[in-house]
């Protein structure tokens, strides 16, 4: 069954290069563009984390790795992470993420 999209509002504004981890998404903002990735690993669905030091996302179940753009860097996952639509509000008003 197709799930009804959820619209989430984030009132804080990230600094350039910042990120925000929600329960099921991670939001990135590089200053010019903001995007969000699903935290559901494309291998078998575990919840992935962003590792700031290495600037990549890693799944704790079988250590698949993804770039901050969601591309697979290391298997066993084969598919890129799902990307969510993000709207950056004007004047530091925050973000709207549609999941």
């Amino acid at each position: 069954m197709q799930k009804k999209p959820r619209v989430l509002e984030l009132s804080k504004t990230l600094t350039a290069g910042g990120f925000h981890t929600g329960p099921d998404y991670i939001l990135f903002d590089n200053g010019t563009e903001a995007w969000a990735l699903s935290r559901k690993c494309t291998h078998l669905g575990c919840t992935i984390n962003y590792h700031e030091k290495d600037d990549l996302l890693e799944c704790p179940c079988h250590q698949s790795r993804f770039s901050t753009k969601g591309l697979v860097l290391q298997g066993p996952a084969e598919k890129t992470l799902v990307r969510y639509k993000v709207e950056k509000l004007k004047d530091g008003g925050g973000y709207i993420v549609t999941i």
């Binding site: 078998l44 669905g45 704790p60």
Partner: peptide
């Protein structure tokens, strides 16, 4: 975290 991930894996299998 582990319980939820285990559930997701079972579902994926």
């Amino acid at each position: 975290s582990t319980g939820f991930s285990a559930g997701m894996i079972a579902e994926a299998i």
